[in-house]
Design a protein around this nucleic acid. Structure first.
Lengths: 150, 150
DNA sequence: GCAGGATATTTGCAAATGCAAATACCGCGT
DNA sequence: ACGCGGTATTTGCATTTGCAAATATCCTGC
């Protein structure tokens, strides 16, 4: 049973993610935003007015967790839930408030700094290659590939 | 405020980790083991009889969460807590039982299959390069680099 | 125009999580 | 031998999480 823990891809990804999340979380707490909240803000910065389910898809946060998280963010004045009566009445879209935009503006430089720390010593090409490979891995995992394997 | 969400490293790492974890968890549940439990088993497969704090370091699981997790694993007969009276009496080491070994044997092939799925389309060199880069990133994050940045 | 199945979100609930305080133990200095 | 700061683990507690069921709305066929 040969199994080398230390070069096992899911392990390497997990520990890197946890480490990244921990340090970053502590710092953005000063801006009154938790890490999951930042993820939502980042998704909405990419495109404002997304539906809850779209935010879930982008952030990999469970949709029920997200529903409650959006509630908290609403209470903190970061976002607003909006139901459009004209469109599909089941859909809730999430819109960033000015306060949410301010929080995003404050955190983006922190986020960029952390990425720079993570990629210290990487050439531009190396960093791009790493990202591209992670995108490929994600592509391999999403959707049907897994179902057929199970 | 330029910030491209879709090529932001922590984002790419997080979503890949979540996707990987979700599919894999569902499958190993059939073996009566949760994902955090598998992480512990994998760490102990690497080296049996580790201290709780060492397992925490290897698995990136919080030490208090781990204390309770080990308790559950003990109840399921996967591992045993051991306090050696001769050595430092504060230390608890964790030892795998035959049932734990059997579970590990059952899951290792599943784990390998998932890694293969994740790395589908990668050459051996590419896969090695990806892993090596993740190890470098982790190195950049652990320890002092972050303190000086905060 | 209405029943019935599909989709989007919310809510109930039990379990997992992480921080901080408590506990147990070590070893040094006196 | 004793107290004291330091380390390893556990426990208390409030929060977060995710699955499954409930709710609300939509849409198609009749």
């Amino acid at each position: 049973m040969s199994f080398d823990f230390t070069t096992y891809l899911p392990y390497l990804i997990n520990r890197t993610g946890v480490e990244l999340a921990g340090a970053f979380s502590r710092e953005i707490a000063q801006h009154g935003v938790t890490l999951p909240m930042w993820r939502v803000l980042a998704a909405l910065h990419y495109r404002d007015g997304l539906r809850i389910s779209d935010v879930a898809g982008l952030t990999s946060i469970d949709i029920s967790t997200l529903s409650r998280l959006i509630g908290k963010m609403e209470k903190r004045g970061l976002v607003i839930r909006r139901r459009s009566p004209e469109a599909d009445g089941r859909v809730v879209t999430v819109v960033v408030t000015p306060a949410g935009q301010a929080a995003t503006r404050a955190i983006v430089p922190v986020a960029q700094r952390y990425e720079a720390i993570a990629l210290a010593g990487f050439t531009t090409d190396e960093a791009a290659a790493l990202k591209q490979m992670l995108i490929r891995v994600y592509g391999n995992l999403s959707g049907d590939a897994l179902d057929s394997a199970a």
